[in-house]
């Protein structure tokens, strides 16, 4: 292994992977102030929001499944009554009252999810505000207009990541609103399966969204 000899005579083993990184990355959490504090706290809040979103999605899945079961039974009964009508007997197919309860539950969950997206928008605003502040400070004191905050990311990266996540969640909440409003009017099994799958798998929240959040947490030292 190669050794480096310093002027004071001391020797240090050479390590090609050693990196000093940003001085800020070595600061203890308790001593963080200003933009760093704000960004780190907002990243943690964003993570908490995503966790809550997952919880609501799971709760919603249970209700959606209940609705699907009730509806499928109703569809089956309807088909049976049509057959009976043809045969001359009359069986009246009615929607059970429990369906309304489940629908209200889903609407309530979607409402809570909408609030989470609103909060996420506020967080994106916070990142935008910090980025603007850093730019403003740079103009006034001719310092680096886009400094690295923690390890590799600049404020702008946090802002862009949050906006990208926000866009996904906006589209997802739009989908959930449409699903919750229309699920009771579905008339066939395949459509019902599509609705339940769309709720469960959250098509607009893809792996890049999770990656962005995890990167943000790693960057800020939460992971």
């Amino acid at each position: 292994m190669q050794k480096t000899t310093f002027t004071d005579g001391s020797e240090e083993r050479f390590s090609p992977v050693k990196t000093n990184g940003s001085p800020v990355s070595f600061q203890r959490t308790s001593s963080l102030t200003g933009s760093h504090r704000k960004v780190k706290d907002t990243a943690a809040d964003l993570h908490n929001l995503c966790q809550k979103w997952l919880k609501f999605n799971t709760e919603g899945t249970a209700s959606i499944n209940e609705i699907a079961n009730v509806k499928l039974q109703a569809i089956f009964k309807e088909e049976e009554s049509q057959r009976s009508e043809e045969e001359g007997t009359l069986i009246k197919a009615e929607m059970p009252e429990v369906l309304e309860d489940h629908c209200n539950k889903v609407l309530h969950i979607v409402d809570k999810m909408r609030k989470l997206v609103d909060k996420m928008e506020a967080m994106a605003e916070i990142f935008r505000g910090v980025a603007d502040l850093v730019r403003h400070k740079a103009q006034c004191s001719s310092t680096d207009c886009n400094p690295i905050l923690f390890q590799t990311w600049k404020v702008k990266d946090f802002e862009e990541a949050t906006l990208e996540m926000l866009e996904s969640y906006r589209r997802e909440i739009k989908l959930k609103e449409l699903l919750s409003k229309n699920i009771c009017h579905v008339k066939d099994r395949d459509c019902m399966m599509f609705y339940t799958a769309a709720w469960l798998h959250q098509p607009y929240i893809d792996s890049s969204c999770i990656l962005l959040l995890e990167s943000m947490l790693t960057e800020t030292g939460h992971r």
Binding site: R171, K174, L175, L178, L179, K181, N182, H185, D188, R189, D190, C191, M193, F194, A197, A198, H201, P203, Y204, D206
Partner: peptide, 24 residues
């Protein structure tokens, strides 16, 4: 089920989110 469902059947959703089927 998703594959066999047509956009007409899902009109309530695809009218506002046209790419939802592909994404799912």
């Amino acid at each position: 089920s998703c594959y066999s469902t047509s956009n007409i059947q899902l009109a309530a959703i695809t009218s506002q989110l046209p790419d939802v089927k592909d994404k799912l």
